[in-house]
Nucleic acid binder design. Structure first.
Lengths: 196, 196
DNA sequence: CCTACCGATCGGTAGG
DNA sequence: CCTACCGATCGGTAGG
């Protein structure tokens, strides 16, 4: 009985899963509800028994992911780690998100502009607050002489967009494991940030 | 008479200019020819006196930019600079492209997947070759003990995607000049790459 | 979950 | 460079 719990949402989850993969590959605007229905295995009209609109699908994909990022950052802020260790943890978290939940993460960073109001403004506010919090961590690191004198905004921008590049990682011929990617990324970025 | 030369292409160039700005902001698929016509100041049908199709606009924007990047890289390869200096020059070039020709650069990296064949395959080959050439520069730097032991693929990926993040730079409240952005970026990345 | 269908909009063309 | 218009496709609904 316990394993049967919460099965109700599963078809909707399945639709979101397929939608996320298609939005990533073709983009939100170029993905039609008929395309999506075909991937799900039903007719387009039947999608609307599980979701309200195309816009709602995008909203759910993006805000689920955004929420997970916010939760991690709050935990990080409350930890007793040094600034550099916080930034390292942040890099590792984002690399793992990009590798393990690649479709959702990519849709969030590539398709957010197709959100409609009030979700668009909501997202932009959240993103801005996220960046500001990261800048504060960098600024603290500078005060404690852990971080070298680089504009905090450039540091944060570089970290976040570096991870974005992993979008194309798995297509690479080279045999690099997720762990190696993560370690190499930390190595490069932390050494670029850290005061030597 | 000399100043009148080559005026013939100017209306098409104007269309490409406006298209680039709109593709960047709304995405290729979400931009209609009627939207574009309005920004240009003519009727949608009149666009087709200057361009052949919506697809052709995207092709021209992307391949012009890709060509400029390839030309720069070839010059760099033939130079006598050290590997680290080559990578620094590359970073500065890409930062300048992103700042000075922001719409075109952003459209190239965000909208290339909407190219149609054979242009899509052509672009992917060019991009792959570009990355391979950069990896070779990193590998040479490693052999000459200028560059530390990080997977060349991760180094190249991090450099290229860092620059991508500048897409949102000018919206920032902070007052950072283009020169400061460029120097900070070089500082962070080169110090992360360089053997100490 | 389906068939049948809606009005709106799409990229593009004909003809002047 | 315009008016007028094409067939195709879009997101979404009605009714069962």
């Amino acid at each position: 009985m316990a394993t049967v719990q919460r099965k109700k949402a599963s078809k909707k989850d399945f639709i979101l899963l397929r939608a996320s993969a298609m939005f990533r590959e073709k983009g939100f605007s170029a993905t039609s509800m008929r395309d999506l229905a075909e991937m799900v295995g039903i007719e387009a009209a039947s999608l609307y028994n599980h979701i309200q609109s195309k816009a709602e699908i995008l909203q759910e994909i993006i805000f689920r992911m955004a929420n997970d990022c916010n939760v991690h950052l709050e935990e990080l802020e409350q930890s007793k780690l040094s600034s550099i260790k916080k930034l390292e943890s942040l890099i590792r978290f984002h690399v793992q998100m990009m590798i393990n939940r690649c479709d959702d993460y990519t849709v969030m960073i590539n398709e957010w502009m197709h959100l409609t109001e009030p979700y668009l403004t909501n997202f932009n506010i959240q993103r801005h607050q996220y960046v500001v919090k990261l800048e504060q961590i960098v600024a603290e690191g500078y005060q404690q002489k852990e971080v070298k004198g680089i504009a905090p905004y450039v540091v944060v921008l570089t970290i976040l967009s570096s991870i974005r590049g992993l979008e194309f990682w798995h297509r690479s011929v080279e045999k690099i494991t997720p762990q190696e990617i993560e370690d190499n990324m930390v190595n490069l970025l932390i050494n670029g940030i850290k005061k030597n």
